[in-house]
Simulated scan of single mutants.
Amino acid sequence: MGRKKHTDHAEKAAHGGGGLKKFLTLVAIALTAAAVVKELRRPKEERTWHGKIASVVPYELRVPTLERARERLWNPDAEHVVGPRVFGVGWSVNMGKAVAVVRQKVGV
């Protein structure tokens, strides 16, 4: 019987059934809902569908564009390595800037 509990726990962990994943999923859902509510509380003509929640967490709910994807995912001239996502709530890594920083550090 003790063996069965260990197997269930290991299987649950291997398949992402842990509490941290569920917690992070709930946080992501709550932040997305907060962003939608924030936009819907504005008059229709003032809705931008992008901004920040609690002045910290960025959200981008506009239809993604190739230009925005390039700007946020591959922009070596950007100020930061981490910035707003192309679509959704939270941050993404600007790989173009990350590569530029590494090249600068190693002198390539």
Rank of each mutant, 00 (worst) to 15 (best):
G2T: 04
T7F: 12
D8S: 12
D8A: 13
H9A: 12
H9P: 03
A10W: 08
K12C: 09
A13R: 10
A14R: 05
A14C: 03
A14Q: 11
A14W: 06
A14S: 15
A14L: 15
H15L: 11
H15R: 14
G16W: 00
G16I: 04
G17K: 05
G18D: 15
G18F: 08
G19Q: 13
G19E: 13
K21M: 12
K22R: 15
F23S: 14
L24G: 06
L24F: 09
T25K: 12
T25V: 05
T25A: 14
V27N: 07
I29G: 06
I29S: 09
I29Q: 14
I29E: 09
I29C: 10
A30K: 06
T32A: 12
A33W: 06
A34I: 09
A35L: 02
A35N: 02
V36K: 06
V36G: 00
V37F: 12
K38E: 11
K38C: 04
K38G: 10
E39S: 05
R41T: 08
R41W: 08
R41H: 10
R42H: 11
R42C: 09
R42F: 01
K44M: 13
E45S: 12
E45W: 07
E46S: 10
R47Y: 02
R47C: 02
R47P: 02
T48V: 13
W49M: 07
H50R: 11
G51M: 05
K52G: 04
I53R: 07
I53M: 02
A54Q: 06
A54W: 10
S55A: 14
V56I: 15
V56S: 11
V57W: 00
P58D: 00
P58M: 05
E60G: 07
L61I: 03
V63G: 08
V63F: 12
P64F: 04
P64E: 03
P64N: 04
P64S: 05
T65V: 00
L66I: 10
L66C: 08
E67A: 15
R68V: 09
R68Y: 10
R68E: 13
A69N: 07
R70K: 14
E71A: 09
R72N: 04
L73N: 01
L73P: 01
W74R: 05
W74A: 12
W74D: 09
N75W: 01
P76N: 09
A78K: 04
E79R: 15
V81Y: 02
V82I: 14
V82C: 08
P84R: 07
R85K: 15
R85H: 05
V86L: 06
F87D: 00
G88Y: 01
G88K: 00
G88Q: 02
V89E: 01
V89Q: 06
V89D: 01
V89F: 05
G90W: 01
W91D: 03
S92Q: 07
S92C: 15
V93A: 08
N94L: 00
N94D: 01
M95C: 13
M95Y: 11
G96H: 04
G96E: 03
G96C: 10
G96F: 06
K97W: 03
K97Q: 03
K97C: 05
K97N: 04
K97Y: 03
A98V: 05
A98D: 03
V99E: 05
V99T: 08
V101K: 11
V102L: 09
V102P: 01
R103T: 07
Q104F: 07
Q104A: 14
V108A: 10
